[in-house]
Design a protein around this nucleic acid. Sequence first.
RNA 1: GGGCCGUUAGCUCAAUUGGCAGAGCAACUGACUCUUAAUCAGUAGGUUGGGGGUUCGAUUCCCUCACGGCUCACCA
Length: 541
Amino acid sequence: MQSYQGPQVDPGGGEEVHRQELINLSTANSESQDLVQQREKKLKAIAGLGFELYPRKFDFSHTIPQILGDYSTSTTEDLAASKVPVRVAGRVMTIRPHGKAGFAHLQGEGGRLQIYVRLDAVGERDFELFKLLDLGDLIGVEGYLFRTRTGELTIHAEHLHFLAKALLPLPEKWHGLTDVEIRYRQRYLDLMVNEDARRVFEKRFKLIKALREFLESHGYVEVETPMMQPMAGGAMARPFITHHNTLDMNLYLRIAPELYLKRLIVGGLDRVYEVNRNFRNEGISTQHNPEFTMLEFYQAYADFRDMIELSELLMQHVARAVVGSLEFDYGEHHISFERFQRLTMKDAVVQYWPKEAGPGPKVESFAEPRAVFDWVKAYNNCAEESGGEYAPLTVPDGTAAGTALQELFEAVAEHELIQPTFITEFPLEVSPLSKQKPDDPNFVERFELYVAGMEIANAFSELNDPAEQRDRFEYQQLLRERGDLTAHAIDEDYIRALSYGMPPTGGEGIGIDRLTMLLTNSHSIRDVILFPLLRPEKSSA
RNA sequence: GGGCCGUUAGCUCAAUUGGCAGAGCAACUGACUCUUAAUCAGUAGGUUGGGGGUUCGAUUCCCUCACGGCUCACCA
């Protein structure tokens, strides 16, 4: 085994190089250089006091939230009667010096706790350190708890420990960090100063944990399937391409784990799920990030009706775990997970037909499949006159009736589906992996769950007839040859797997990012992804 | 890719019709041993995103480029 030699140290110019890096990190103007230089000077002064500048560890007795929780009801007298000694670490967020004493707030684990530092209590060396602190520095404090005259729970410091310096200044303390670009690019700053940002991600962690608990309590096992696939299947989207050197082959980043999870169903893993990152080479919007997280789960011997029932329970379990209630606000809407509405896609088009588009269709209007094109025309006439309020649909010659119906649904109804609604009966043409309805082969046993106008989940009775699957793939291939880059490719290996016999199976995918948006009242997917994809930062040169 | 809006001190924002580029916070110096947006006195900090144009004079008007946001289209 080869031992790591560490970076080469240049005893002469090392410090200069280090400073150069800092300057490059900041905006490379003279002001921020000054700030950095001032803080470096303080760091040297701290070293001069005998403090280690980057100590190895700090043993703490409590986290800040623990103290805030455990002693929230302790009175001044309680704390005076039995001294509570504490050792706490955190980041300095405020400083209020008063000559030979001073206050500061330490932040850690999402909580803020005040410390009181006075010369006669901590001694000269530690008080000198206190005077050299900047906002953002990390310190440890040893002392005991008391309440100030204004009643705030505070550590009366007896010793200060220096843990690390913030050489770059924190965002402004009163307005906080509002520049959305910096919030996304330098998420650590967002998490440091915006309590809400931290709360959103804490809820996201809780949500994923709750999903796992729920599925495991229903007998599911968690699996991991390839993210690099020789062909990208299981969804309709353009993939990212990468290359393996040794095998000299192109691979696709997965757009969905679906076909692998169903191979596992064939193999006898009857209830599987994967919390999976998917990659789709499509546009970016408030509802789309090129990589995003889904939950996919598959249950043998079940169909889409079972998945509807399971979804309702799952959504309710998650809402209780994350917001503690089945009701919550999303923007101007009050959403309730108490009851889930069910509508067929045709019902939804009929029900939400815009008044401006004149008398709308009835469900019977769609009995003849081609009739949908008349309604697309009616909608488009209205859209053209709406002056941009409605966008007309583009339905090129040769578009299938089912595809047109789905587009009409998305244009007319999708944004109206505020309360949780299962949309059922999807057209065959847009559902290459779903089983047909026994009484109407133009439609499939599939549903999507909509909340707040967003698609949250997609599920169906999985097609397990290999011959029918081949036909579906061939139709997709036709679309592909006509230029639809999102049409599904033929996956021979998947057909082979189905040919060994796959049990009847219900499967579902849930968009974790969007579900998190809902439950945290976030209106951009970037607010629920720690590091959303952004354009590369413009170099300061 | 289209439309709309934006870019001024480290941060958050002002600047009248085109007429000396300002405030708060952060920073620096000093005072202050219960403050909490600490306070008080003082100091420093700017190529107004880049380039070009109109003008006696441009943060302001015009063109252009870059970056960002919202939105529409594609998508989940």
